[in-house]
């Protein structure tokens, strides 16, 4: 008798566990699914809450590409994020090598400073950055965004890369030193090849951060030609505040999210290791 009860209990627990998993997946995916469905409806259909669209149209996608605002924004986001990532990685690779391997005075202090820069509120540099950008004559240009994104990406990439570089075995470096290699040779010939997966991971995370950045993009640009995607989506509006073109907004949202979701799913393991490298010491 008790045997059967135990078995039933086990079954129930298993069922509960499965339901819980399904619930998690549903909660995570439904908003994105709903955005896709809404973007494929047109006209009055969008206001009906059908879970599956009655007829699929690409009208909304057609509309957002009709004026140049959105395609411009896509191009801007791509350029800005790409350049930001390249510069940030180059700077961070040099710095993190020094921080991980060369011992010098004040190293710990610099590490703490870098960590606190990743944490501090971006609003705190807003007015100073605005003045800097004005002085350099970069206001309302893509380079203004690249410059300001350094505040966000450089400390973060340096921090993450440092924790990856620490894991490279000391013996390799010692062998190289005995063979008479300098710091720079050690970095380019030994460290960078070894940590290249980490570079990809960190680069991806920095790319996502730059692609999603909103505060600086909103403040340092003025015209549609230089706006990035998040700002363009935030600015999409209809004739009045109360008639937002929801179909278009959803179409734009789906378009900018798809590449990111694809990237994340492809590099799933790497991204997880990158996200946790800076924080968890195993």
């Amino acid at each position: 008798m008790s045997h059967i009860v135990l078995k039933l209990q086990q079954r129930a627990r298993h069922l509960f566990f499965c339901l819980f998993c399904v619930l998690i997946a549903l909660l995570c995916l439904f908003p994105f699914y709903w955005a896709i469905v809404s973007s494929l409806k047109s006209g009055a259909d969008i206001f009906a809450t059908d879970l599956v669209p009655k007829c699929i149209t690409f009208q909304n996608y057609y509309t957002i590409f009709q004026d140049r605002t959105f395609s411009c924004a896509l191009l801007n986001s791509t350029i800005v994020s790409f350049v930001t990532v390249c510069i940030a990685l180059a700077l961070a690779a040099l710095a993190s090598f020094a921080l991980a391997r060369i011992s010098f005075r004040g190293r710990k202090r610099i590490l703490i400073a870098i960590l606190s820069v990743t944490m501090f509120p971006q609003v705190a540099v807003l007015s100073g950055m605005f003045e800097l950008i004005r002085t350099l004559g970069l206001y309302n240009q893509r380079s203004a965004l690249i410059l300001s994104y350094m505040t966000v990406t450089v400390p973060f990439t340096a921090w993450t890369l440092t924790s990856f570089m620490r894991e490279v075995p000391k013996e390799l470096e010692e062998a190289a030193i005995i063979d008479g290699a300098g710091h720079f040779t050690i970095l380019t010939k030994i460290f960078l090849p070894i940590v290249s997966p980490a570079l990809v991971t960190t680069g991806l995370l920095a790319f996502v951060a730059a692609w999603n950045e909103f505060l600086f993009a909103l403040t340092f640009t003025l015209t549609n030609e230089v706006r990035t995607v998040p700002v363009a989506i935030a600015m999409l509006s209809g004739a009045s505040q109360h008639e937002l073109p929801w179909g278009n907004i959803m179409a734009a949202s789906v378009l900018v999210t798809l590449p990111l979701v694809a990237l994340v799913l492809i590099f799933q393991r790497r991204i997880i290791s990158g996200l946790t490298a800076g924080a968890v010491k195993g």
């Binding site: 994105f32 809450t49 998040p230 991204i271």
Partner: peptide, 28 residues
Amino acid sequence: LRAAVLVPWAIPTIVSARMWSWMLHDVY
């Protein structure tokens, strides 16, 4: 499931704000 959990993280904040404000729209 792990892939599904990563999806909200990958969606840009602005986009997720827009998606939710559509799902939470007071009339539709």
